[in-house]
Each structure stands twice: as C-alpha cells, then as structure tokens.
Design a protein around this nucleic acid. Structure first.
Lengths: 329, 329
DNA sequence: CGGAGTACTGTTAACGCAAACATTTCTGGT
DNA sequence: ACCAGAAATGTTTGCGTTAACAGTACTCCG
C-alpha cells in the first residue's frame, strides 16, 4: 500500500480511499492511484481489514455427506447467496461423526474466524452437546435445532400430506410407508404426517417399515413390502430409499406402477432417471439456501434478534410415472 | 488478550506464549493463564494472527455443480484432508458460469485471502482466460489445466480400456459409446481410449453418440441406440447418461442386460440402485481429494516447485448386473 | 558468597488497514 | 482581491498478535 502511495504520489490513506471507492477522491487522483495499484499488483490485505473492521466477511457452514440428498444443492445455494452479498463461505467438518468433533470444529473456528454459522446438518450433535461461542449468529436447517436457533426447513408435513393424498386419490385403499431412521426428526415428521393423513381420510395405517435413508436400506426394507400382496402404494421417506424399494419390487416381479405405486421425497436429480421415473415430493433446496443466508445476514449485519424464527419452505409434488391406480381399477 | 493477562497477573506476551503452547512458560503460570482464558472465553483472533504471520491457514476451492458426479465427494475429501492439516477451506464461485466470473472470484479472493487454490472444476474458464494472482500456489483436478498447473486426475484412459475389455470378454462383437460433450477433455480422453481399445482388439468402432453428461441427454441419445438392433453393448461416458440410456432401453422394450449391456463411468452412489444395478468404472474421489491437498500444501508449506506434476489416480471396474454376454451366446 | 548461566517474564515495535481528526486546496460570492 | 465554506488530501492512532530484544529471578559451581 505504501509503495502504491509512493508511486502515485499520494498518501496511504488516499490509496485506502480509492480501494474502498470512497467518493471524496478527485477522479484524476483516483485514476492515478488505480494505475499504480494495477502496476504493482496491489490488492487490499483482508486480514488487516478484518482486524481493523472487527469482522471477517465470512460465514461458516457445517454439513455432512455432501454426496447425499439435497445437501449439496443447499450448499451451492448458500455459497451463491453469500457470495452475492459479498460474503465468503468456509466449509467445516464434513466428515467427522462425533458430536465433540463438531463442537471442536466450531470452537476452532470460534467467532474469531467467522461472522456467523450456518448449520446444514450437524449429524450426531444435539442442541445440548453442541456448544457454540456465545453471541455467534447461527441459523440452522437441521430440524433438531429448531427452537434453539433460527431455522429454515422444508414443509415436511405438507409434503407427506400431498404424497398420501395423491395416492389415495388414485384409488389406493391405503398407503404403506417406508420411513427414515427414528432418530431423525424429519423422518418422524414425515411418518407422523403420513399417519395423520391416512387417519384424516379414514384409511387404516399399516405398520411403517423402516430404513436409514440409504438406498440399500430401502432395498432391504423393500423386500418385505414386495412380498406382501396387500401393498399397492408406498410412500418412501426419501428418494434413495424409494430407488432401493423399486429395485426390490422389480426383483420380486411386481410391476411399478402396475402392481405397486411409489412416491419418494426430496426430488433429487436422479429421481427422474429411475425406472420408472419417480413421482416425488420435491424440496426447493435453492430457496432453503437463500433463506438461510438471509436469516443469518440479518443477524450479522442488522443485529436483528430472530430468536426462534422458523421459516418453512413449501414443497411440490412432482408427478411422474411411478404412480398409477391400483391393480383392478 | 489484555484482559486475560490482567486476570492472570501476567503480560500479554505470556498469554500469547500460552496460547501457542510455547514450552518456556512455567507450568503453574500457564495453568493460571489457561484458567483466565477459559473464564473470559478468550480465543486468539485469527485476523490478527494472519496479519502477523502473513498467511491465512486457508485454501480456496473452486467447484461447479456440486450436485453432479463425484464433485461433492472430491470436495468432501478435500475439506477433510485440509482440516486434518489445520487448514480451513473456502468454497468459491460454484454457480457462475462465465469465465470472467471465475477470474473475478479468484481476484476477489486474491492471495490476500488464501494461501493456495484448488480448482476442482472451472467450467468455462480455460488456462488462457483464467488469470491467477502470481505466486499463488494452485493445484487442479480439471484436466483442461493439466500442463499448466500441478494436477490430479483419475485414470480416464485405463478406465475406458477396462470397460471395453470387460464387454469384449463377455463376447460382444463391438462396443458402442455414449460420449460426453466434445469440449470436455475427460470426455475426449474416454472416447479416444474407447476407440483405441476397440482397434487394439480388432473390433470395428461404430460412430459415437454424444450427450452432455446429463441423464436427460443420455435418455435422448439413448433412443437412437435403443432403436438399433446391432447394438448389444454400450459404454457410457458417465453414470448419469448411462441411467438415461437404460431408461430409453427400457422404454424401447430392450432388456438390460439381456439384449444390451451397459457400462457407466464414475461410480456414483446411485449407480448401484438403478435397475439393473449398473456396472461402472468407479473413480476414487476420496483419493483425488487427498492428493489435491497434499500437492497444494507441499507448495504452500515447503515451497516445493511441482511445476507440471500430474498425479493419476487408478480407477476400478465395479461389475454389477447391467452387463452380460450378448443375446444368442 | 560472587558470578555465570539458565529459566522465565516483560517491553517495544510492526504486520496493513481505516476511522478520526487535521490540514491544505479549491470554489464561488462579493 | 478577499473570505467562508466545501472539497480534497494528509497525519496520527490503534485494531490483536507475536518476533526480537531486554530484563529479572533463580540455580549451580568454585
């Protein structure tokens, strides 16, 4: 900076002003400074700026298993939204499974590193075990943290309802459920809403079959469903399990959707490429990402107290070829 | 820091020493300081440290379309490896498509922000259009940059070879190819290696059909393949297109693998859940991520000059149910 | 018991930047 | 030609940290 100042024949302060586009610099001076900057390859040092300003222009983001589900699309949306607001995104702790690790990662990060934290998925950590630096603005999409921090999430309940309603409308007597793991709150919400929707329609809810979100578990659990001739419609708690289920059905010689209709949840890219293309409840991950950033930045910049705001993003039923009226109708 | 010093009855310098685990502090003093740090919730300010040290403990990472392919798994591996080396990862510019944007993002980042840069995928940018701050250590997995920067990549050629060999060994007379877009270097490499492997085996190479990596394009291009009774084996340049192709084959009433065998490339999670489960050439994205970090940190920390090192990560043929001998054998 | 180490702790200064305040240079009105 | 006020630029200072140097208080030896 000093060199630039010398070369342009001005003070360092003026260079600083030009660097920040302050309007109080005479255009010709600014031009001269800019030439000098260019010539010397000068860029403001962000560490010094952060030190001076007391903030970092960076938000942290905790996520797990990017390859899975809509995680990656949320991450993308967050990065894009944050960038357009001039913030940089630091990705933390994708792999480590233990709750301690998450806390440790956050502590390491501390609020000496980031201005706010977005928790996409904290996996094994819970609101009790996860200790965050006080005064660090946080926003979550992991539903276990709802009520503890401002949150953004898809409309789990509405999604399950629309899935069940769709199948009942096609004429199915009832709808089976391939549920997610019991320790997952979204899984429980989808399951509860499924049960409620059946009750509402006067249908009998069969016992739920359970997987762990993976396609393999859907395949395993699907074997039981495939063997039961009573089963004509299944609402799977996510698309991966639905894929596994359909594979099990194929192997059992049961036609989809001829014998059994299947609805998934999430709307992942490949759901359209399964055989048959999967009817699914699509989440708007882009919107979730954008709202996360919005909620976080409102706390960071405007010091708003969002307390336990919970922003619910609507879902959308995407009707494809895996659903049809039950056989014999 | 001053507060901690006051509370512990020492100087700020001693607090600094304790924070950095310098061994020259008397154990009891260190203990007293640590108590004070705990009590006051003190954490060293990283901006100040970065300013002092002149480096950031951060690496930048450019990637596009995380939802696709193995991108997300590479990203995961990079983050994990970087974290275990005490580095933080900043994710940049996922969405913007224009070359200028990439350069702009990098410039914004500059080497005032990061100690090194990992380019997973720079999409439309080319070695010519992408201007990097000089002296910024870089490592790439995007093959268009091979030769310009140290690179890590999967063994495209070996992968195509093993796919073709597998199909020929099953008894197919030749192997069709569902190629990637012509502006993609890996696509061209896979295509060339496919052609070479056929020539090597004395088989006639049919014209390649072309997609753009997406499952939809595989479906569209697959229609032509499905209509041609001569086609008994297809090597698809990636798993998504293979999925689309299989859907097209199903719709055309051609059995997989009874009538047509299909091999994919990448080994994405869902390839095992397609119907039938897809035989594919799996890339080791974890290893790619780890090598990227290793190569970058060797430049950053040890100032090694890696020039145009090119580290080739082996691939592995995963035989599943989408391949079989041709009909009538 | 004096002096040379050694162990430990403190003081000063600088990293690059920008806010606050100070100073100079210009403008327009008379 | 002069002055008030605005416009443009400069100077000082401190953000939190740590390297370099400067003590001070011990320990051990002759």
């Amino acid at each position: 900076m000093t060199d630039v100042a010398a070369l342009a024949g001005v003070s360092a302060q003026t260079v600083s002003r030009v660097a920040r586009d302050e309007p109080t610099v005479k255009p010709e001076t600014a031009a001269r400074v800019r030439v000098a900057m260019e010539q010397l390859g000068y860029t403001p040092n962000r560490a010094a700026r952060a030190l001076r300003y007391g903030h970092y222009g960076t938000v942290g983001m905790i996520a797990h298993r990017l390859a899975r589900t809509g995680e990656s699309r949320t991450v993308e949306a967050v990065v894009e939204a944050a960038q357009s607001e001039g913030y940089t995104v630091t990705l933390v702790d994708l792999a480590s499974p233990a709750a301690d690790d998450v806390s440790a990662a956050v502590a390491r990060l501390s609020h000496q590193d980031i201005d706010g934290l977005i928790i996409i998925r904290a996996e094994t950590a819970t609101p009790d075990t996860l200790v965050l630096p006080s005064h660090l603005p946080v926003v979550v999409s992991d539903s276990r943290f709802v009520g503890h921090h401002p949150a953004v999430g898809a409309d789990q309940v509405g999604g399950a309802e629309v899935a069940v309603a769709h199948l009942l409308r096609l004429g199915h007597r009832t709808v089976h459920h391939l549920a997610g793991p019991p320790d997952s709150i979204p899984a429980r919400q989808r399951e509860e809403a499924w049960r409620a929707a059946l009750a509402e329609a006067g249908a009998v809810a069969p016992p739920a079959v359970r997987g762990d979100w993976t396609a393999t578990s859907g395949y395993d659990a699907g074997a039981a469903l495939a063997a039961d001739p009573e089963v004509t419609a299944v609402f799977a708690a996510n698309d991966e399990m639905a894929a596994g289920l359909m594979r099990a059905l194929h192997e059992a010689g049961r036609a989809v959707p001829g014998d059994v209709s299947v609805v998934g949840f999430d709307g992942i890219e490949l759901s359209a490429q399964l055989w048959p293309p999967l009817t699914t409840v699509a989440q708007d991950f882009g919107e979730i990402g954008r709202r996360l950033v919005d909620l976080l930045l409102r706390q960071v910049r405007d010091r708003e107290d969002l307390a336990d705001t919970h922003s619910v993003v609507p879902v959308r039923l995407v009707e494809r070829a895996s659903t049809a009226p039950p056989p014999g109708r």
